[in-house]
Write a protein that binds this DNA or RNA. Structure first.
Lengths: 354, 354
DNA sequence: TTTAAGAACACAAACGTTTGCGCGCGCTTA
DNA sequence: TAAGCGCGCGCAAACGTTTGTGTTCTTAAA
């Protein structure tokens, strides 16, 4: 309204290109290109002139053209199952940080736990000529041929958190077994002797390892695992609630629950409170992921932190290594992060009642 | 290990291009290109042959080249302050959905509430030749020249949720005033008469409107607003807690709090419970955003839902409209979504004690 | 003084598409 | 029978970079 400009029919002024700079300075485009990328065969004086003019004309490099010519962009593709909750946003956060430090931009896709969409996402990313692909698998991904194309094109591929079981791949994971071990051992240290486990889909490495950690901790205390105390589900809040009701119906009562996810342990907590069973006095609880809400339930929930940001950063580092040596023969690399147990009221003996 | 392939030094097989298809079929690249894009000047028979061969050779179009030639890609750039919590992931969800339906891919950037990063993100997106830019402003963005470049390049620009105040822009927003009005009126209907308001930074449209809604509701009940009852902050949980302590120190007690964000109302709840003040009997609470944790606190928190997914979808629709008529003179468009109040225990009179 | 070497820059061919224009064919219409 | 028209397709020039291979000087070594 107060704007001085006329109606301006979006008169898109053709962006200034290297050709413009070259014409203006009376040199060739080669010189411009090399000056901007700080090539050694360009004189210091010329470089200065080019840089200065570029600033003045507000030259913006066309990354598309560069990517086309070089067959590779400065884009990093990421495929995650979803972005709700705390985990994936945080690891994306770590990825963005490390990537931007290395001069890469990040493009994020969600598979929504669907292998079909995952497939399409990978295609999309490849067509966008990404320099690398970072993937955390969808829940129902049991077949991995859609990743072959990535490698065939020579694009670095890194899996994180949820990784393929048998394939030779580069990956960064949490030591899920250790995290589960610590959480379960902690419950045992608090005096629990009948600790149940809410397990996730066992074809996923993370849930398999968490279950193993649980079993290992029991073994360390010479407790023989009771199959009735291990309930496998999709780990939603409702699943956790249902499983807990099932556990409470057992003839011999339980005194602790370790869930492979925080949503499930939340469901457990809700059922226990509804039935006026005191937490942690009668049943102690521990979860996995250190979700934001673990600190605001009553009692607050003990949980295993997954080092989300470190995971993202590590994935990018791994990608950069792979990108640095494009034609190197494949050697499997895996970085394993150490989890950290956050002990809160839901498992601490003598914790104040709410 | 069991893989039959040799060590395979990442022998990237040169991707099959339109030139390959043309050679194979003995036609020109023009024909290939037109056949693939279903151009009318290509015979049906030829189209079939091309399509078939493309499938057979697993031809993957190089979007970069196409984008370069056409000066526009099928990428949609999104800039948000952050992706934690529920709101932005959900709206991104809506964006992805609508975008993929229209054949666009989405690239997400976080500004981390920093105008500097926001500026850089916009640059990055433009250099990636995105077809459009969708933005929700960073908290400290008070100056908007970095968006001029977007329009200058003729790239459609849509703001959502947090939009510039004075500028002539296209935007999709929630009716924040209405949402705040409903929440506050609800508290008054429950019998509250001294309702406080935890307000956010007033240079942001959303917080200004929420405050106005609060004031309007008071006016509807002929209550003159008390400046002591309006506390402005950054709306973190700590801010909410601090503000609540401040309110409790007032000589005349309050009986309700409406916060412009859920984190703040959570802080309020924690302080009230710590001081054994009963919610909602002594002080009723209502927040804004309908975050996930509002359903798991005790008591559960009343909150205003922001129609996140609809917002994302609407933003994409707006973008598509703008993209359809590139040279149309600018006319300001704004779509306003209607909020929905979720009434829960924290405000319901006669709600069961936890 | 001759020669080799290096510094500083230019030529031109790529990268894989899209698209305005042109050309020949067979058909209809006058 | 000649003019006109639409169909189906090819030619070649873009789009904005990067880069291997020159080319021209200047300078140091032989």
């Amino acid at each position: 309204m107060s704007s001085p400009k006329k109606t301006m029919p979006s008169a898109a002024p053709p962006a200034v290109s290297m050709a413009d700079l070259a014409r203006e300075l009376g040199v060739s485009m080669t010189t411009i290109s090399r000056a901007l990328s700080n090539h050694h065969s360009i004189g210091a004086a010329t470089k200065q002139r080019v840089l200065k003019l570029a600033k003045k004309l507000n030259y913006q490099p066309n990354h598309l053209a560069a990517a086309l010519r070089k067959g590779q962009s400065r884009l990093l593709g990421v495929v995650v199952p979803y972005i709700e909750g705390k985990f994936f946003p945080s690891v994306i956060q770590g990825i963005e940080q490390a990537a931007s430090k290395a001069g890469f931009s990040v493009i994020v896709c969600q598979s929504h736990e669907d292998v079909q969409l995952e497939r399409r996402n990978v295609e999309t990313l490849l067509n966008a000529q990404v320099a690398g692909v970072l993937v955390s698998l969808a829940r129902n991904t049991q077949e991995f041929h859609h990743f072959d194309k990535v490698r065939q094109r020579g694009v670095p591929l890194v899996f994180f958190d949820r990784i393929p079981p048998t394939e030779q791949v580069n990956s960064v994971v949490l030591n899920d077994r250790e995290g589960a071990f610590q959480a379960t051992r902690h419950l045992l240290e608090q005096g629990c002797r009948r600790v149940a486990h809410l397990a996730g889909p066992q074809h996923l490495n993370i849930y398999r390892h968490r279950r193993q950690g649980y079993l290992d901790a029991l073994a360390a205390y010479s407790i023989v695992p009771d199959e009735d105390l291990i309930i496998t589900s999709d780990m939603t809040t409702e699943d956790g609630a249902g499983a807990t009701r099932q556990l409470l119906a057992l003839p011999e009562p339980i005194d602790g629950i370790f869930a492979a996810g925080d949503s499930a342990i939340l469901g457990a907590l809700q059922v226990l409170k509804a039935q006026s069973i005191r937490v942690p006095q009668e049943v102690a609880l521990a979860g996995f992921s250190n979700e934001g809400f673990t600190a605001i339930t009553e009692p607050q929930l003990t949980s295993v932190d997954q080092r989300c940001e470190e995971m993202g950063q590590a994935a990018v580092r791994l990608f950069l290594e792979l990108a640095a040596a494009p034609d190197a023969p494949f050697v499997q690399r895996q970085v394993v992060l150490q989890p950290e147990l956050f002990v809160r009221e839901s498992s601490r003996q003598g914790a104040p009642l709410s």
